[in-house]
Nucleic acid binder design. Structure first.
Length: 818
RNA sequence: GCGGAUGUGGCGGAACUGGCAGACGCGCUGGCCUUAGGAGCCAGUGGUUUUACCGUGGGGGUUCGAAUCCCUUCAUCCGCACCA
């Protein structure tokens, strides 16, 4: 017996792979290229087995693809700027670069210990000047194209992180990172004009047919395209007008008032001559100060105030009151809504509260509506009522007709709105890439010259957050010369959102060492789009949408020749423990290190892959790990069986085993190819291994000859190689003494070896299983009937009864209806 | 509220275009081997009143035949959410 010494085996092969550069790729040679990319991690704390799943899946795909003869590029790097390092720095008084670097070292060691291999020559880290120089370059390019701009706006402010946040980083009114309530602040900030690309980002989702439907839907919803009409409402006693957007222009005749958002720029002017101006402005202030989470709670009572002014609904010339309401959002549409209380639930609630008129203009086909008796708005379709010439028209058709009418009369114009907002990219934090802009009293806002990049992050800045960027404290940094006039100027002190860093890293991997360009266009065009991207679904919107946007801009500027970065996307499920997501605070984190020490990396890998379909969430079980270990030992012990096996074995048993082997090769290949169903692939190999053992149990040591056992074990090893590479290499070496198993091609199977000559077919009577018959493969029709009727159990069940119908599916099933 | 997903033994999960439900693994039970077993090997393991019947969240339907298709309903999870 040679024991399975996984620790020796694993360190041996990990070293060999590294020394021999198994995963090294030469950029210039892109024949058969396959770019297999895993989302680069944020270097925070130690990885747990849930994180491991991501890298293990990626490693399996990479190793499998190598065996399939592809030229596989699989790089890794670090999304190294960001808040947690900075917060830790504040707490422990260690510079973020120090903690980041030590975290990187730790995670790298963990990845290595899993046997997850990368072309480390291409490692990138977003916090190094060599990298963020080009993040700044991208900013300048965006600025050049008018896609980066500064504006004053109501923005999301996280009081605990002391910084502004992008819309995408706010979930249910709270900071995505720390869960604090997000406030609205009126600040001047830098934005990327992603809205300019909204339509293309939406349209091109159709191209991404190898992405999970879920992610595509989430992106569509986030972009949120709505078609409708912008309608003008002239203000009474004024030469100005208010415009509002609606998707329900069919309800225009039921519009009985108008509501403005508290942030609407015309409020002060409108309240001008009103004796109640004080109260109005107080209300506006109160609403503006309210946190977003408060304002967006649907169940909350809506509040409003009358401005004292009126506007005209031009379709019927009616004067309607103009209100301000806390339920109107400033950032969507025009910040003004036409209120149709009979057909919009929010307007209905507001109208009820403030006793505003309700007029029914859409008939509910199921029961007539009575404005006085409504207890909820009717938002469905129907035929128009009380709508002048449009009365009697079904609501869907009316939408078009009224829009046409408004356009000819100059009342309104068809319009498309998106929920997507521009991407707010400036942050009042230290640990990020400085925005390469300069403020000059004479020249205004001036970009730093490309030649002067990178704008280095000043090491000595005090990174304690004060609400202003910590960079302000670095006097040497702030004080600079204007790139335009060389006069005294000051630098922008905000840094960039880390999602800017991560929106282009996959391009940098292709030519990580370039010092004069972010990437080489020719090489990038040869290697991208990424063939397989693997990561967590939590990035479905943020990172994936931003990356698509950045790619499209670079495409438009001619820097890349593709307009979608990721061809195929796989999002793996989360691993939980005791029914909850693994987290330090819950104390349910499973560390891979102890498990690897006890069972070895191959066991941890195998169990992680066996736990369930990789796209689904799964529950970790320490017991299950033992099962994986047991299986690997069983595979290992076949070496011993092989050593004592005779030259020849039992012919029938061997034929059986060969067939099982070819079936297994087919099954494993298909499971990996089609859906990454590693769990069923592994169970198929387990069946094959069980088959060997039970054969030996039945017929003793003479069951299988050396030759056949050797062949089967070789194929088992090949099939397992992507999953458990160390043990596979070791067995492979013992069997063939040849070079790395990953230089050997993936096994093929023989069609003619898959089937037996006879099949056992179930016989059902009236759909209930009654017996089984053995018949030659491919037997059909009357011949099958004969065999079936000859069966004792069938005879017993059929008896004298008349057979009404025969259902015969060749090689599959017989059903007799009596 | 809208959108999406998932419901199968004690547990994780299998089941291709409708065709033997429960592969594989965990756990459990028994046996062999052992000084011993928390090692290894083998066997058994959905339920029940066991010639048979019942069983894929519940109810209905289509079909010779449904975990799979249709209708309906419930539950859980995820995403979005006062988006006019």
């Amino acid at each position: 017996m040679r024991p399975y010494k996984f620790d020796k085996i694993e360190s041996k092969w990990q070293k060999k792979w590294k020394d021999e550069g198994l995963f090294k790729v030469v950029t210039a040679d892109h024949r058969n290229k396959y770019y297999c990319l895993m989302m680069f991690p944020y270097p925070s704390a130690a990885l747990h087995v849930g994180h491991g799943r991501n890298y293990i899946i990626g490693d399996v795909v990479a190793r499998y693809s190598i065996m399939k003869g592809l030229n596989v590029l699989t790089p890794m790097g670090w999304d190294a700027f960001g808040l947690p390092a900075e917060n830790a720095a504040i707490k422990n008084n260690i510079h973020p670069s120090k903690s980041t670097m030590s975290n990187i070292a730790m995670m790298k060691r963990q990845l290595d210990s899993w046997g997850v291999s990368y072309d480390w020559d291409r490692e990138v880290s977003s916090c190094t000047p060599e990298y963020y120089k080009w993040t700044q370059w991208i900013f300048l390019k965006f600025y050049e194209k008018g896609l980066a701009y500064r504006k004053k706006a109501f923005v999301n402010w996280c009081p605990s992180c002391n910084t502004v946040l992008a819309n995408e980083q706010v979930a249910a009114g709270a900071c995505e990172r720390c869960d604090s309530r997000v406030e609205q602040k009126d600040l001047e900030q830098w934005f990327f004009r992603i809205t300019e690309y909204a339509q293309r980002l939406l349209d091109d989702i159709d191209k991404l047919d190898e992405w999970p439907e879920k992610v595509r839907t989430m992106q569509r919803n986030w972009i949120g395209r709505r078609e409708g009409v912008n309608i003008d409402f002239p203000i009474v006693d004024s030469d100005k007008k208010l415009t509002c957007f609606t998707t329900r222009v069919d309800t225009i005749y039921g519009c009985t008032y108008m509501v403005l958002a508290a942030e609407h720029p015309m409020i002060e002017e409108l309240a001008g001559g009103n004796p109640e101006k004080g109260a109005i402005m107080d209300f506006v202030k109160e609403v503006r100060n309210g946190s977003r989470i408060e304002r967006t709670r649907t169940e909350r009572d809506k509040k409003g105030i009358f401005t004292g002014r009126y506007v005209v609904n031009q379709v019927n010339g009616r004067k309607i009151p103009l209100w301000i309401g806390d339920y109107v959002l400033t950032e969507y549409g025009t910040g003004a809504v036409m209120a149709v209380p009979a057909h919009d639930q929010r307007d209905f609630e507001f109208a009820k509260k403030y006793d505003l008129p309700i007029e029914v203009v859409i008939d509910n086909p199921e029961r007539p509506l009575d404005a006085n008796k409504l207890d909820a708005a009717y938002e469905g379709e129907g035929v128009l009522l009380s709508s002048d010439q449009f009365s009697g028209v079904p609501s869907n058709a009316a939408k078009e007709k009224i829009a046409d009418y408004m356009e000819t009369e100059g009342i309104g114009k068809r319009s498309i709105h998106f929920k997507l907002r521009d991407w707010l990219i400036s942050r009042q934090r230290y640990w990020g890439a400085p925005i390469p802009m300069v403020y000059c009293d004479k020249c205004g806002i001036v970009p730093v010259s490309e030649d002067d990049l990178p704008v280095l992050l000043p090491e000595g800045a005090k990174f304690k957050p004060t609400g202003e960027s910590p960079l302000k404290s670095a006097a040497d940094f702030v004080k600079t010369e204007c790139p335009a006039c060389n006069g005294p100027a000051r630098r922008e002190i905000d840094t960039m959102d880390t999602f800017v860093d991560s929106s282009w890293y996959y391009l940098r991997y292709i030519s990580p060492g370039l010092t004069d360009r972010p990437f080489d266009t020719k090489d990038v065009n040869n290697w991208l789009p990424v063939d397989q991207y693997i990561g967590g679904v939590e990035h479905a919107i943020l990172h994936l949408l931003y990356s698509r946007f950045v790619t499209k801009v670079l495409y438009d500027m001619g820097y890349v020749g593709f307009d979608e970065p990721f061809k195929r996307l796989f999002t793996q499920g989360m691993i939980s423990k005791d029914g909850a997501k693994m987290s330090k605070s819950k104390g349910n984190v499973v560390s891979p290190d102890a498990l690897i020490e006890k069972y070895g990396a191959d066991t941890v890998r195998l169990y992680t892959l066996f736990i369930g379909p990789p796209e689904k969430d799964a529950e970790w079980s320490d017991k299950g790990v033992e099962g994986a270990y047991r299986f690997l030992k069983r595979v290992w012990n076949i070496l011993d069986i092989l050593a004592v096996s005779a030259k020849t074995g039992n012919v029938d048993l061997e034929k059986d085993l060969l067939r099982k082997m070819h079936q297994t090769i087919k099954k494993v290949t298909e499971d990996i190819n089609e859906e990454f169903h590693f769990n069923t692939a592994i169970s198929a190999v387990m069946e094959l291994v069980n088959h060997i053992y039970s054969g030996i149990d039945r017929c003793g040591a003479g069951s299988y000859g050396k030759g056949i056992l050797n062949e089967v074990l070789k194929n088992i090893t090949l099939l397992l190689a992507p999953f458990v590479p160390h043990i596979a290499e070791e067995i492979w070496e013992k069997l063939s003494g040849a070079e790395s198993i990953f230089k050997h091609e993936w096994p093929g199977y023989r069609e003619d070896m898959l089937f037996t000559d006879t099949v056992i077919v179930p016989v059902e009577i009236n759909g209930k299983l009654r017996s089984k018959i053995e018949i030659p493969r491919g037997l059909e029709g009357d011949k099958v009937k004969e065999v079936a009727l000859a069966d004792e159990k069938v005879q017993g069940a059929v008896g004298e009864k008349k057979v009404r119908k025969w259902v015969i599916i060749p090689d599959k099933l017989v059903n007799i209806v009596i």
